[in-house]
Design a protein around this nucleic acid. Structure first.
Lengths: 219, 219
DNA sequence: CAGTCTTATTTGTTTTTTGCAAATAACATT
DNA sequence: AATGTTATTTGCAAAAAACAAATAAGACTG
């Protein structure tokens, strides 16, 4: 088929979040080819139309290439485009963000992890992509169970509380938080499982099947 | 530059909302060329890399071509992609949605307007795009001033109340709604301007500069 | 092994928000 | 002036959230 218009380049870029040492972090990749060879950047690559069923599949391929497994949570973020963002030409980058528990990453060797508030300068428009991803994460944290995907499969109420405060960036009342979360069925007790220590044992919870229902709210 | 990979087609599609006769509607365009020539579909087209600075500019161009002016509210919705969605080949469609007061459209001749719950069957994956756009609109209505963009520049509290109920699809208490909205500074009284009729005159309001701040809420 | 420390979880109490119903306001029309 | 119609306010009951503090349950220490 003859095309009426020259087509842009199409790629995907991914913002891979994790929480390490109480701190929201991103996984960056060192670029192996020009442009910006040798610099740290968001993991990404061109869409392979032979291989990828859609751009989300391309993002999954990129993520597997980087960390060796699929991210527990993956969502399309935004599509960035224009002539200026990539020196190779007019391009479209479909950006995704993913949440990955740190516990899954410790064994993964090649990952270079940086706190989101201490990132090196990023090439292309990756700074913008990161800004938008952080904004989305914070936004969704206030009305969904999203931050729970940054935790390992089993966690205590306090883990969850901390990670919400982390993600949102404000203090949340313990009692209210507990009440709200438990009222929404997004997590469930794991029967007879507790985390022990030099203190009262803490009930362990896991995400329930309703985990991705947005939290109820009214206008 | 030599490309390692064949590139997908890149287009934009737009879901143009308006409210006519108390009913949420979409503007559709009759396709002038294959594929699906003659059918009603979302207004859209290929990105023109010479002409468009980015995909949003392409969307604006498409919208201007359809209604003759820029939409008061335009937002990127989602990017749809894959080999199957368009018979011409592996394609990427960056979808946008826009809100347009009906009062601006009455003079615009060519627009064909259909209630969202009585649309004709749509080609490509436009059904999916519409579903996602409606979902986004309803979602944002519950925590932002978005629905106000479906109203003309001056409106009464009751207009706003009705359009929120319309957009969200549920009943909202008058007094609470009024209180909530006024507490958030998203609209402001127009001094000494009232809509009169066979009843007590109604204060006219307009969107304030803070209009797009999301409504406050807690977790 | 009693006392102490630490974190988990629950309980009150106060304050704020919401839901609901009804009263009151202000104008046009008859 | 009486009536109809929509706008706006008020009052109160119910629910939710914020705040502060008590109680629980283990580990650790001397």
């Amino acid at each position: 088929m003859k095309l009426a218009h020259p087509q842009p380049l199409v790629m995907v870029d991914t913002a891979l979040f994790t929480i390490r040492d109480e701190c929201l972090c991103l996984i960056l990749a060192r670029r192996k080819e020009p442009p910006f060879e040798g610099l740290l950047a968001l993991p990404g690559g061109f869409v392979h139309v032979q291989e990828d069923t859609d751009t989300e599949a391309a993002a999954r391929r990129v993520i597997r290439g980087k960390i060796g497994f699929d991210a527990p949570y993956l969502e399309q973020l935004f599509t960035f485009s224009g002539a200026a963002r990539d020196p190779r030409g007019w391009s479209v980058s479909v950006a995704y963000y993913a949440l990955i528990p740190w516990s899954l990453l410790v064994r993964s060797s090649s990952a270079e992890v940086f706190p989101v508030d201490a990132l090196p300068p990023l090439p292309f428009d990756h700074g913008q992509i990161v800004a938008k991803a952080v904004e989305r994460l914070r936004g969704k944290a206030t009305y969904s169970s999203l931050p729970a995907f940054l935790l390992p499969a089993e966690f205590t109420m306090n883990d969850l509380h901390r990670i919400y405060e982390q993600a949102i960036g404000t203090r949340l009342d313990k009692a209210s938080f507990r009440h709200k979360i438990l009222g929404q069925d997004i997590i469930e007790e794991i029967p007879d499982r507790f985390r022990t220590g030099a203190h009262r044992p803490a009930q362990l919870y896991r995400l329930s099947s309703k985990a991705l229902t947005p939290l109820e709210r009214k206008i």
